[in-house]
Simulated assay, not measured.
Amino acid sequence: MAPKQQRGEATVDLLLDTALRVYAASGRQGFTVNAVTAASGVSFGSLYHHFGSFDGLAAALYIRCQDQLCDPVVAAVTRSRTARTGVQAFVKAYLDFTREHRDVATFVHASAYSRYLTAHAKEVAAAKEAKFAAIASWMYARVAAGEVAVLPDQMIEVLLVGPVAETAHRWLAGTYEGDLDEAIRVLPDRIWRSLRAD
């Protein structure tokens, strides 16, 4: 790799790392282009050169954080032999990641309806689809095998991801009264009942 390209990649990583730290320390209100450039020492011009806009930086950070969350979840699910153990693996991997990587999980969950995701909707959707393709393929095989109910794709996604993501969101916000270990014990069977073939 050429030195100029190495410097460019190092700058991108520095900006993304700094943006996450700024968000973790200051929340949505303090997550500004001025805060990120001041904390990173990178100029406005360099930020705009690499990301096009502050929304572009935020969307790139969201995709990076989403990837970090999805990688262990996808690995856990696709190693599972049955639909039931896959659901258990999904819940555990997702909530374990949330507990162990709070800053990353907070940014993913807090970004759901943010302007920067709207501005980069196609890019974000493509990245998400690429990550979840392995889980979708794994799930289709379980539907074909008669383990999982024949349901529309989006309904399967809502039934699998919805309860886990909402639990993580509330825990991160401090509004979840239970603990994550309890959720890991209870959710898999409840979600499995909603997905299993009758």
Results as ranks from 00 to 15, higher is better:
residue 1 M to G: 14
residue 2 A to V: 07
residue 4 K to M: 05
residue 5 Q to C: 00
residue 5 Q to E: 15
residue 7 R to C: 00
residue 10 A to K: 09
residue 12 V to D: 07
residue 12 V to T: 11
residue 12 V to N: 06
residue 15 L to N: 08
residue 16 L to Y: 10
residue 16 L to N: 05
residue 17 D to I: 00
residue 18 T to G: 06
residue 19 A to W: 05
residue 20 L to R: 04
residue 20 L to T: 06
residue 23 Y to H: 15
residue 24 A to V: 02
residue 25 A to F: 08
residue 26 S to W: 09
residue 27 G to Q: 01
residue 29 Q to A: 15
residue 30 G to P: 07
residue 30 G to W: 05
residue 33 V to H: 03
residue 36 V to R: 08
residue 37 T to K: 11
residue 39 A to M: 12
residue 39 A to E: 12
residue 43 S to E: 14
residue 43 S to P: 10
residue 44 F to L: 14
residue 45 G to N: 12
residue 45 G to P: 08
residue 45 G to S: 14
residue 49 H to M: 13
residue 49 H to K: 12
residue 50 H to W: 06
residue 53 S to I: 13
residue 54 F to R: 01
residue 55 D to V: 12
residue 56 G to S: 11
residue 57 L to H: 02
residue 58 A to G: 07
residue 59 A to D: 04
residue 61 L to P: 03
residue 62 Y to L: 13
residue 63 I to V: 15
residue 66 Q to G: 14
residue 67 D to V: 04
residue 67 D to W: 02
residue 70 C to R: 08
residue 72 P to E: 05
residue 72 P to R: 04
residue 76 A to M: 13
residue 78 T to M: 08
residue 79 R to L: 12
residue 83 A to G: 15
residue 84 R to C: 09
residue 87 V to G: 14
residue 87 V to R: 04
residue 88 Q to Y: 09
residue 88 Q to I: 07
residue 90 F to I: 01
residue 95 L to M: 09
residue 95 L to T: 01
residue 95 L to G: 06
residue 97 F to R: 01
residue 98 T to W: 02
residue 100 E to C: 05
residue 102 R to Q: 14
residue 103 D to Q: 09
residue 104 V to F: 10
residue 104 V to R: 07
residue 105 A to R: 03
residue 108 V to I: 14
residue 109 H to L: 08
residue 109 H to C: 06
residue 115 R to E: 09
residue 117 L to A: 11
residue 117 L to R: 11
residue 118 T to Y: 08
residue 119 A to Q: 15
residue 122 K to N: 05
residue 125 A to L: 10
residue 125 A to W: 06
residue 127 A to P: 02
residue 129 E to W: 00
residue 129 E to D: 13
residue 133 A to M: 00
residue 134 A to L: 01
residue 137 S to Q: 09
residue 138 W to G: 00
residue 139 M to I: 01
residue 142 R to P: 01
residue 144 A to E: 13
residue 145 A to K: 06
residue 145 A to C: 04
residue 146 G to Y: 03
residue 152 P to C: 01
residue 153 D to L: 01
residue 157 E to S: 15
residue 158 V to L: 08
residue 159 L to D: 10
residue 162 G to K: 02
residue 162 G to Y: 06
residue 163 P to Y: 06
residue 163 P to K: 00
residue 163 P to E: 07
residue 169 H to G: 06
residue 172 L to M: 07
residue 174 G to N: 06
residue 178 G to V: 01
residue 179 D to R: 05
residue 182 E to L: 11
residue 182 E to D: 12
residue 183 A to D: 13
residue 184 I to E: 10
residue 186 V to S: 09
residue 188 P to G: 11
residue 190 R to F: 08
residue 190 R to P: 00
